[in-house]
Design a protein around this nucleic acid. Structure first.
Lengths: 241, 241
DNA sequence: GCCGGAAGGTAAAGGTTCGGTAAAGGTGGG
DNA sequence: CCCACCTTTACCGAACCTTTACCTTCCGGC
């Protein structure tokens, strides 16, 4: 990806609300961003694919081509960071958007602070992945009835979505990636919470406990997370006959 | 794994759609890959097992031998990276594929960019695990009908899993690693329980006793753990006629 | 062969450690 | 301030390790 090394950070805003677009421009340009605005889905997609921007702020309610369709098409070709604008309480769209590969969402009632925070977070993350070796797309992991998608940070169990907290998600992902092998509390804590372990730290146990509850798992006869006494935990790998 | 150090990266494509195979070859060869294509499952499996390739792109819909069967068979012998091709929205197959050990999936409507990105990701990951995780991992030990896996911290006896306590496990592992040689109670206690031995300490004897019980072993005519009077214990190595 | 002591086998008891989990406490973002 | 989340604390029960005790087996000496 080739972005100019200097100058303001170029952003694309796709929203049919012209007033909102102006608002965003007025707020963001003094802060070092260059805002290009388009007002329908089709041109939004075209501009987003041009490679001229560092990120897109994308409304989901659009005339012509729906925002979700724009996102889906965009994701066939590009890993450009996408921040989607959703009406308050529009949970289903939000989830659909994140599953299609949006990087974050922004309620339409956002505060300027919130906007800036999420925008920066999204840009930072994309810069980080780029620096770390390009658009490393992480493959989803499936084990037992679990489907874990690192990109969307979503989990389904027997086709049904689970609501996990960040630490729970990472913990589960970490266990799933080494399914069948034991992982120590040290490793888990480091990967899931980025923290060092010191004795009498029970937080992994607690996270495992609540994970099990959400998975409908029983600690004694677990379908998923097995305890390995004195060592750590292990995700069961289904028998392979 | 022995791949040529130089030249194009050799790929295997298994798909009955000859046109698609040609498409892949035309796209990938100029980018530094060598594409070998076969069009049915059975030859796909045979070629994949040859060790001649760096990765496989595997269609799941195949005449003769199903792609999932190919994958399952392949995974018995090989950790070769597999990218599977799935029809859009074919969630069940995707899940089955990943559970069988596919490394990623590619919707049949993939863009060339997407193909390349995922292919590179898969190759990079496999290179990484080979470089880092490979030699570091502790190798399982097999002796008699025993299979001891330090990574999983699991033991099977004649294919059936055994539930051992931490000390029992370490004790058995320790004995198995020096199968055929005697180990003193001192050594065993130190390795298995991290404790110093002082005279009249019987705890190793007790652990050996319960181990034998779990192994179905008889102290007098042992299949596994032999007593060496006045010295310690020894795990029998199966006769080598 | 018989005897005695040392070594080893093992069941059971005792005490400790470990892990599950509810609930309290703390923290940061909205 | 509220909410969601993570961590810490506390308590309990279960699993575990060691010790003890009582046998059996082994082996050298008689």
């Amino acid at each position: 990806m080739s972005l100019p090394a200097e100058g303001p950070t170029p952003l694309l805003v796709v929203d049919d609300d012209v007033k909102l677009c102006r608002l965003l421009r007025d707020y963001l340009e003094p802060l070092g961003y260059a805002v290009e605005a388009v007002h329908d889905g089709r041109s939004g997609l075209a501009r987003a694919l041009s490679g001229d921007h560092a990120a897109v702020i994308l409304d989901l309610m659009l005339p012509g081509m729906n925002g979700l369709d724009v996102l889906r098409e965009l994701r066939r070709e590009s890993t450009l960071p996408v921040l989607m604008l959703t009406a308050l309480g529009d949970e289903p769209d939000r989830i659909a958007g994140l599953e299609l590969g949006a990087d974050d969402y922004l309620p339409k009632t956002f505060s300027t602070r919130e906007l800036l925070a999420r925008l920066r977070a999204v840009l930072r993350r994309s810069a980080a992945t780029r620096a770390a070796g390009g658009p490393e797309r992480e493959a989803p992991v499936a084990v037992g009835g679990l489907w874990i998608d690192p990109g969307a940070r979503s989990v389904t169990l027997d086709e049904k979505p689970l609501a996990l907290t960040p630490v729970e998600f990472t913990l589960l992902l970490c266990l799933a990636r080494s399914a069948g092998r034991v992982r120590s509390r040290e490793q888990l804590l480091l990967e899931a919470a980025d923290r060092d372990f010191e004795s009498f730290d029970r937080s992994i146990d607690v996270h495992v406990s609540s994970l099990r509850k959400k998975l409908g798992d029983d600690a004694k006869e677990p379908r998923f997370i097995e305890t390995v006494r004195g060592v750590g935990y292990r995700l069961r790998r289904p028998e392979a006959p």
